[in-house]
Design a protein around this nucleic acid. Sequence first.
DNA 1: CTCGAAGGTGGGAGCGTTCCCATCAGGTTG
DNA 2: CAACCTGATGGGAACGCTCCCACCTTCGAG
Lengths: 338, 338
Amino acid sequence: MGATRRPTIKTVAARAGVGRTTVSRVLNGSALVSDAARQAVQTAIAELGYVPNSVARSLVTSRTDSIALVIPESESRLGSEPYFSAVIRGVSNGLAGTQIQLLLTLVRDQREMDQLTRFLTARRVDGVLLVSVHRDDPLPGLLEELGLPTVLAGRRSPAEPLHHVHSDNIGGARDAVRHLIERGRGEIATITGPPDMDVADSRLRGWRDALEEAGRESGGELVAPADFTEEGGRSAMRGLLERRPRLDAVFAASDVMAAGALAELRRQGRRVPDDVAVVGFDDSIVARHTDPPLTTVRQPVEEIGRTITELLLREIGEPGGARRHKVLPTSLVVRDSA
Amino acid sequence: MGATRRPTIKTVAARAGVGRTTVSRVLNGSALVSDAARQAVQTAIAELGYVPNSVARSLVTSRTDSIALVIPESESRLGSEPYFSAVIRGVSNGLAGTQIQLLLTLVRDQREMDQLTRFLTARRVDGVLLVSVHRDDPLPGLLEELGLPTVLAGRRSPAEPLHHVHSDNIGGARDAVRHLIERGRGEIATITGPPDMDVADSRLRGWRDALEEAGRESGGELVAPADFTEEGGRSAMRGLLERRPRLDAVFAASDVMAAGALAELRRQGRRVPDDVAVVGFDDSIVARHTDPPLTTVRQPVEEIGRTITELLLREIGEPGGARRHKVLPTSLVVRDSA
DNA sequence: CTCGAAGGTGGGAGCGTTCCCATCAGGTTG
DNA sequence: CAACCTGATGGGAACGCTCCCACCTTCGAG
């Protein structure tokens, strides 16, 4: 009747004619095993097709060999935002060559947040990667309190105390706006992301820096807040055109918003780049397909994913190190919209 | 010294003045507990902030409360393909309300495949979702052998024996081509996906069906195989134009390939849709942003993700049921390219 | 009043590991 | 030659839970 149970360490020990401990030592690469014993054990493992039960191992070591990637985002973004896919790919790359598994946790509402809290409190993972953090996100604080190794992609504020990695948002935005200035644009507006995110702040800051260093206007009328969505970009553009009908350039803090802006400009009969130049941010796949193709700031999203993973693995390996912090360079990709 | 350990079921039992078993019963919602005992236990749990150790639970129940989503894909696709993000979102939706965790496994090479095999053999998950299966994928067979609950998004062939869900690829393609015929197009070519994938087959089949029912040519010269990438679409288009310079319509089996085709058409000075009409498949984000916006077949990718998850949960709940199989409807989204 | 069923309860065993010790052989030292 | 180290080994205990089974009530039926 009963299917033959999977072999355990005991089965292997019996077959190899050694004790459990010796098998365990071989499994974990301990040096205190004679060659003869090691051989016998390895043969037995191969013959039995033995695979260690990692749950049992976890119970005693209290390591799980898994990390969580937490994406606390309203549904609308993952999917429309290629950003997350790229991060995931990078994380997966960073994990290649380890035995560590990736848990993906999308947090959409308070219920899921509570569930995640319990999950993390129970230490079901060895570490956490946090993406797209908002200024008053409760999660980083919780993780700090739990003492669970954590690395952020992005930061809550410039004073972020946790390990984190982000791209040079200020520099990237500055380059974009300098480019517009060099091309002779006079009135350069910006469409920003949600004000409770540091990315949005930083890109706005870069816009402002570039304008100020050139002695240009960088007043509030030229700033239209949106929310990183296409529809947001569209209506921000509409607002800008109402307030400042003579503007001739826009820096949007994301490609998706830039795409929305392009749509609105077309609807109002403004030619891009002839009448209005547009620059985006991200160099996501949409940038290559807009009409006209979008000039944008490339950020190495996949590399961000890889880097946060590397930092996390290091922190898990030897906890309590100094705060690690990396800024990855951006680069301007010039296409036809500016 | 030592930080206070996390409370265990014993701690809770002691505090509530009951036995371990009673606490376990409350935790698992057993009916055989008096109200008084249940109260006491719940109070103790709340006061101690007790969270059950699911590793210990797994060890004894040999359930893991997690499933794996396996994406066996060369790097190039995830990220450029919004398809996977949408599936992930759907899966995550399907899991909402359960305690089940999602493990994401990207399989890029043989080493990662071996690792996954060991992982699955060790039954570290309760079930597996498999996406983007190829005709001679070894994984489905392995899973069948292991008796691990499995649901496929897509199928290896029309005779797929495992549970699976896919969209109506044949019908969708047929609708697309019918649309082109109705619009008066005469020579309708197609760019197909990799020939070892049933999706590609089915969409080709739909193209052929529609042409045949209209008594049109559906010969091999009008078929250009590609690989679901933009570059593939581009060079397939180039080949088609060489062989059949007078073609006036193309059905591409994915939006990304359609985007490549559009680029090549533009490069060669052909106007879309005036000279050549183009229809894609997927209705992914790129479709809205191509120049001109792409007429395409919408498939409910997120719903596919949700549905495979639901089927998997059902199979995990009561294994060994009849083969479950669902076909989800597609719909034509008419934009400007056709 | 006795008996059995049924509800409520708790202790022991076991899940498959790792880790701490105790043990033991075989040398080396004074 | 006794005392001691050093490398190799294995058994017991523990990790925190669930499940089996035995027990102890209580209550209704005969």
